[in-house]
Design a protein around this nucleic acid. Structure first.
Length: 693
DNA sequence: CTGGTATAAATTTTT
DNA sequence: TTTATACCAG
């Protein structure tokens, strides 16, 4: 199979240790790599891709690597590019499960009873649909129904199966909603996030031709973070690789932190039974952390039962003691951490980028941000509200979605009402009633409703103006489908500008908001537009084609700026896969780090106790992920009092602190700040500021 | 009937 | 600190 390539063969795997090399070179069948934290799993995957392309004669288009986040995909792709000549990477797919799903569905749309221009609903729109079907404003209930439907989809259960499986009245209702929810999506020619994986899976399962087409295309598959796959994704992997079963799955059961969205660690164990010939390779040498940190991590995770036994070790030296500090309040905690980072940067001659502050929930970031701003410490916030969830971005995207797919009712409603153009509740309701009677999309209904004389002229007129405007853009953007005429397609950039100009979006922002808010929002819009234009130019797309990619864009986060010298703030979930020399883990308290949400709805105490236990285990893995982000030093802090909602809550240190084993931990009390009164603290901060300024 | 303004409420984790 | 709802003016 070996093919002569210009690249020297010896570089391959020369910097891999023995198990890593085994994993990279193993091609006799399915392969599972159990990769502990910091054991170089990405290196294994990228080297293996290089090996496949360079030395095994695999064509780029026959190799697919799947990740869960765009960031991981981008990183992997960059690393492969440094290893392999660009001629060989042509057609190579390194993407998220969801992006692959989009591509699959665009190509196979017809078989899924979708038009190729289908829309992807974001979770807010999806929630909106459920809200209407349920006719309630009870938020907890809405969440629970959406969650339930999502879990059903991820478990490959259709509404029929869900109805049968429903054990409680609540679940039965959810199952009914599930059915009409799916019908609604179909009417909108839309899919939700879960469908991006579910529909390809169902399609391949039931359609032999499609299955064979994709199996011929995917000759080698690599899957990163395998412990985070759900049942549907497991099945998809199985269907893509077929009987050939040529794949490598890389994962770590101790880092499974997405059970709440349907991931099951059991997928790791299931591989060993579904594929008896499975080759199992463990990576146990950690190249990231000093021993103290690793041993604390091992101790914590030791309290969990685990599927596969593995012992992580490192030869990076013992390291400094882990510091655990009790703080009076969350504000003091934040100030204290900020102050300490400031001092340590100086003492250790480190850079801002060497520090990270990690926390359980996004809301904790707020206090920390404030403290960092006070000290003029540069920081970047990762995670948090996604760029594409911002109102202004959703506004613009609604227009684009509508241009691509005018059956997309949620997009229509959003676009037609922002900016305000004299169309309100009553008009939309009348239009909606008419549309559902005639089985039309809202957009199509605008053209029909005139004859029916169901709306007053003054309601009708703005609707018609709007619809004509959208139609005009559709025309100029390039015709879809078969009768497409490329000469008619105007370039996307100017058209996009014109669109924003005509709807006067910038003015709308300044009219509705105060200047500061309007400015930042307009900036975000500009950033989006810039991104789109760049994309249009790079790939030579007209607006229409671009718009078809936009949904996919939703999942591609912004092209990350090259790592600026800033302190990184991140949730524990978003920190997986990253590493920092110095890590501060804040809010390590009972109730927060094991997080205690509201209790389960439907009683059955035995079940509740079990679910509590498994939830604690997942929180423990989260703690494990946090600890193992640290390379050299680790600080944990917890607060005696914390402001939650509107009240001060008394907190206790997390059980996980005890579990780390006191031998590796140094407990601290009363750091400098706490002895001071609030007034004195403020003065001290001001002093510090003056010194800097 | 629309759209702006005031007032109350609300906060796990993410593709 | 932002977001949904209720109310009121045009």
């Amino acid at each position: 199979m070996t093919q002569a390539t210009p690249a020297p063969g010896h570089t391959l795997a020369s910097d891999l240790n023995t198990p890593q090399r085994m994993a990279a070179l193993y091609l006799d069948g399915p392969c599972l790599v159990l990769a502990g934290a910091g054991s170089g799993k990405t290196r294994v995957i990228t080297q293996k891709i290089a090996y496949l392309l360079r030395e095994c004669g695999y064509m780029g288009r026959h190799v697919v690597a799947l990740t869960f986040t765009n960031k991981a995909a981008r990183e992997m792709s960059e690393r492969v590019k440094t290893l392999v000549d660009s001629r060989l990477t042509k057609g190579l797919t390194i993407s998220t499960f969801h992006s692959l799903g989009v591509r699959f569905l665009r190509e196979e749309a017809r078989h899924a009873r979708l038009k190729p221009e289908f829309s992807i609903l974001d979770s807010t729109d999806a929630m909106g649909i459920i809200q209407e079907l349920l006719a309630t404003t009870d938020k907890a209930r809405l969440r629970s129904v959406q969650q339930t439907i999502s879990l059903w989809k991820n478990a490959l259960m259709d509404p029929d199966a869900a109805e049968k499986a429903a054990a409680t009245p609540n679940e039965a209702e959810a199952a009914r909603i599930y059915r009409s929810y799916d019908a609604t999506l179909a009417a909108y020619q839309s899919v939700d996030f879960d469908d991006l994986i579910r529909l390809p899976t169902v399609l391949m399962q039931g359609n032999e031709a499609v299955r064979e087409r994709w199996q011929a295309r995917v000759q080698y598959l690599l899957v990163d973070e395998y412990q985070d796959t759900n049942e549907c994704q497991y099945r998809l992997v199985q269907l893509l690789t077929g009987r050939r079963a040529m794949f490598t799955a890389v994962g770590d059961d101790d880092q499974a932190i997405y059970a709440w969205r349907g991931a099951t660690v059991e997928n790791l164990a299931k591989l060993t039974t579904d594929y008896p010939q499975l080759k199992l390779i463990k990576l146990e040498q950690n190249y990231r952390s000093v021993q103290r940190i690793l041993s604390a991590a091992n101790q914590v995770i030791g309290h969990n039962p685990n599927l596969f036994d593995k012992k992580l070790w490192s030869d990076l030296g013992v390291g400094e003691p882990i510091q655990v500090t009790a703080m009076d309040t969350d504000v003091i905690e934040a100030e204290s951490v900020a102050l300490r980072i400031s001092a340590e940067r100086f003492e250790r001659r480190a850079e801002w980028r060497d520090f990270a502050i990690l926390y359980r929930s996004n809301q904790q970031a707020r206090v920390v941000e404030q403290a960092l701003r006070n000290l003029r410490i540069p920081y970047t916030l990762s995670g948090g509200q996604s760029f594409f969830d911002k109102a202004e971005i959703r506004d613009v995207l609604a227009y684009l979605r509508l241009i691509a797919n005018d059956d997309d009712d949620p997009a229509f409603i959003r676009a037609v009402t922002t900016p305000r153009r004299g169309i309100g509740q009553a008009t939309l309701q009348a239009l909606g009633e008419f549309a559902s009677q005639k089985q039309l999309s809202l957009f199509a209904a605008v053209f029909e409703v005139a004859e029916a004389e169901r709306l007053a002229a003054r309601q009708l007129e703005p609707l018609q103006t709007f619809a004509a405007f959208i139609q005009q853009i559709q025309q100029r953007a390039g015709r879809k489908g078969s009768d497409r005429v490329s000469q008619g397609a105007e370039p996307a950039g100017p058209l996009l500008d014109e669109l924003l100009g005509v709807i006067q979006y910038e003015r709308h922002l300044y009219d509705t908001l105060d200047e500061r808010a309007a400015q930042t929002r307009w900036q975000n819009v500009q950033e989006l537009v810039g991104w789109l234009k760049r994309k249009a130019e790079e790939d030579d797309l007209d607006l229409f084609e671009l718009v078809q990619h936009v949904a996919l864009v939703t999942m591609l986060e912004r092209g990350d700026e090259d790592d600026p010298d800033t302190v990184k703030l991140s949730t524990l979930h978003a920190s997986k896969g990253l590493e920092y020399p110095h890590v501060y883990l804040v809010g390590v308290e009972e109730g927060l780090l094991p997080h205690m949400g509201r209790d389960e709805e439907d009683g059955d105490p035995a079940k509740a106790a079990e679910s509590l236990a498994t939830r604690i285990q997942e929180e423990r893995r989260l703690m494990y992920v946090g600890i193992t982000r640290a390379q050299r030093t680790l600080h944990l802090t917890w607060c005696k009092k914390r402001r939650r909602a509107r009240e001060d809550v008394v907190c206790e240190p997390s059980r996980f602190i005890d579990e780390m084993g006191l031998s590796s931990v140094k407990l601290r009390e009363d750091p400098e700040l706490q002895a001071l009164s609030p007034k004195q603290r403020l003065g001290m901060l001001k002093d510090l500021l003056n010194k800097k300024g």
